[in-house]
Design a protein around this nucleic acid. Sequence first.
DNA 1: GGCAAAACTTGATTCATGTCAAGTACTGAT
DNA 2: ATCAGTACTTGACATGAATCAAGTTTTGCC
Lengths: 202, 202
Amino acid sequence: MQRGRQLRPGVTLVRAGEPMAALFVVRSGSAKRYSVTLGGGEQVHGFVLPGEAVGLEGFASGRYTCEVSALEPLSYCRVPIRKLEQLLERLPGLRREILRLLGQALDESQRLRGDLAQSDARGRVAHFLADLSHRLARRGLSPTEFRLSMSRADIARHLGLTLETVSRALGTFKREGWLRVRARDISVLRPDALAALGGGIA
Amino acid sequence: MQRGRQLRPGVTLVRAGEPMAALFVVRSGSAKRYSVTLGGGEQVHGFVLPGEAVGLEGFASGRYTCEVSALEPLSYCRVPIRKLEQLLERLPGLRREILRLLGQALDESQRLRGDLAQSDARGRVAHFLADLSHRLARRGLSPTEFRLSMSRADIARHLGLTLETVSRALGTFKREGWLRVRARDISVLRPDALAALGGGIA
DNA sequence: GGCAAAACTTGATTCATGTCAAGTACTGAT
DNA sequence: ATCAGTACTTGACATGAATCAAGTTTTGCC
């Protein structure tokens, strides 16, 4: 495992189509995962937060299938696949951990898709915020006070909305007293309300 | 591996919340993967075709996270997890294969989510049909003549649409000469047109 | 084969979100 | 500190999909 590597904002960590030589784990900062569509637009698959892995979907074909680029100064570890395979040979615990990681990524992706498919614009934005909050909390960061490292346009492309609609949803949450929003700084005042709107599975 | 098991239409193969005791591989027939939402509705995550695996997302927590029930008479193999772990110990090739399977499921889920987020109703339905066609072809079945084993309502819940909208989309494809539709029997006349509308990543 | 229930299609209307457009507030550079 | 460029907000309007409501076809059962 190689650690202590750094990336400046905007720099790409992995590119779609490159052979998967390593997995990455983000240590600090955040990144955007996206694909470039036929029309030249970006499909934003999601955002990577500290403690989360990058490159898992490369197991499918041995190549990365999306681009991942830093939204803030990013530090990360690199885990070469060769090394990983050697370790998997010997460590049943690591085997389970990798399967768990993949299973979790799969589960989250499906759950998210389901929720997006069935909620309106406000529900999607609420879900997005609640999810972010939850993932930050898991990492020991504040679930109620945080700074969005991504633009409204990125959020919109992630949720299948337009940036205007995202802006309006944030506006209504603010007006209803659920959030404080100042540019990219968010304070969640009513996590329960967001979670309720974000909806989801029983 | 235990094979030759059968299920009648409507019967459930795995239930959300159950401990993951085994993986399953469908041999013939098809199934619906779904979650029950807070309101009692169904979130349809997708459909399982012959040759595809069921239960992968259970690796996340050791429990299945969605329900899978047969849409047609279903035959399948059951692969107990204990057995699988023993085999993973000895067979590096199987380790890679399982990772590949999970990576592929993850990649497809993300790609699908991205496409759904960015297409309109017709695009989604076109994508759905093109995907189905592609997966059937992979299995050696006809990519142009098939029978939908799921209802319009299931398709709609899968795509985040209403059943009326799905019906109308099929209607327009029919009128434009891209499909023949007779109840659940589909003939694809213009696969290219569907693929183009289904759009996707570069 | 006939019947009832379910699944599906089609039409009219409403509403949410996209689109277009203008204006405001950040941000980073000089 | 000022300025320029970008990001964001807000408003007016258009549009595609949801909703509501009949009708029609298919399916499975007797």
